[in-house]
């Protein structure tokens, strides 16, 4: 529209001006031409390519190594593609690599991690979203103090609390069990998740909440019928944060569980850092890739929603 008006102006001016001056309108017109191989483009794409290669190279080495047999690895050409592709290391890493006395591979750790991650993610998000909703919309007495304490909790280093929590878990009889670890993950996820949800709910229009109250909806009705359906992006963000955080956790896993209930990360460490026998690099690489697969898949599947959710939460708060 604007474009159209701008282009029309010279014609109108030309019509009004003496015929001899029409030549004044010669020269550049329309979009400025751009060269594909300008210095600027070469610099931008060159930098991007270098950075991409820098980050992808280790992944390439891992994938390639995991597909080689041990004799080929001993040749020392870590960058060369495998001459003979074998999936033996992957099978071994999954089902028969030894950690301590167990020789059933990473599969045990994988299922332990699933049993830890699923309830931890579900519980922590369920509780934190209600927390955030209450803090943002129902300004109860002491809400500010409660929130301050929660936020301070996010800044206390985990190491300080390791031992006290061991005692607490022992006293309530959960030490060494999967549920003990689930509880720990829920507690440590609470500050940041509550902050996330509070800010998101605070960014929703307050009048919506008021309208629902005039319509007679109570605490839970508003949460379930009004707020939840509007919060898909922030739930996706929370799920990604929690799944990757809990799946990748090593510290809590090694402290609060027993060898039978070790999560995948702890088991991976035990496989890779085994001091006895030959170092099976291909098995180690395969095991590491297997462990990293879950967060990787999550990122690829939900990357777009993740960015949308982060942006939505950042608008206000």
């Amino acid at each position: 529209m604007v474009d159209h008006v701008l282009r029309a102006t010279p014609d109108m001016a030309a019509a009004a001006a003496p015929a001899g001056r029409a030549g004044d309108f010669a020269g550049p017109s329309g979009p400025r031409p751009r060269r594909a191989f300008s210095r600027r483009n070469i610099f931008i794409y060159g930098t991007l390519a270098v950075v991409a290669i820098y980050y992808l190279l280790p992944l390439y080495v891992m994938v390639v190594t995991s597909l080689k047999g041990m004799p080929e690895i001993r040749l020392g050409n870590i960058f060369s593609p495998p001459m003979e592709i074998t999936f033996e290391p992957w099978v071994k890493a999954w089902s028969s690599a030894c950690t301590g006395l167990n020789c059933d591979g990473l599969s045990r750790g994988f299922w332990n991690s699933v049993r830890i991650t699923v309830p931890s993610v579900f519980l922590s998000i369920a509780i934190a979203s209600v927390n955030g909703y209450a803090l943002a919309n129902w300004r109860f007495k002491g809400a500010d103090i409660f929130f301050t304490i929660l936020v301070i909790g996010a800044f206390i280093p985990y190491q300080v609390m390791l031992y006290p929590i061991v005692i607490v878990l022992r006293e309530i009889g959960l030490y060494g069990s999967l549920w003990g670890l689930v509880l720990v993950h829920c507690i440590f996820g609470m500050p940041i998740l509550t902050l996330l949800f509070r800010n998101y709910f605070a960014s929703l229009p307050e009048e919506l909440f008021k309208a629902a109250r005039v319509d007679g909806a109570g605490f839970w009705t508003i949460y379930l019928r009004i707020m939840l359906p509007m919060s898909l992006p922030i739930f996706v963000v929370a799920i990604i944060l929690q799944v990757t955080g809990i799946w990748n956790d090593f510290l809590f896993g090694v402290v609060y569980t027993k060898p039978d209930t070790y999560p995948m990360t702890v088991q991976l460490n035990n496989i890779v850092n085994a001091v006895q026998g030959v170092k099976e690099y291909n098995v180690n690489m395969a095991a590491t890739l297997l462990t990293g697969l879950v967060p990787l898949v999550i990122y690829f599947v939900s990357g777009k929603l993740f960015v949308r959710g982060i942006a939505a939460g950042a608008v206000k708060g």
């Binding site: 229009p205 009048e207 919506l208 008021k210 005039v214 007679g216």
Partner: peptide, 15 residues
């Protein structure tokens, strides 16, 4: 409570 007051309300942002 608002619902028990016998009122209806219209907001600026429609809500």
């Amino acid at each position: 409570e608002p619902k028990d007051r016998g009122i209806g309300m219209v907001f600026q942002s429609y809500a």
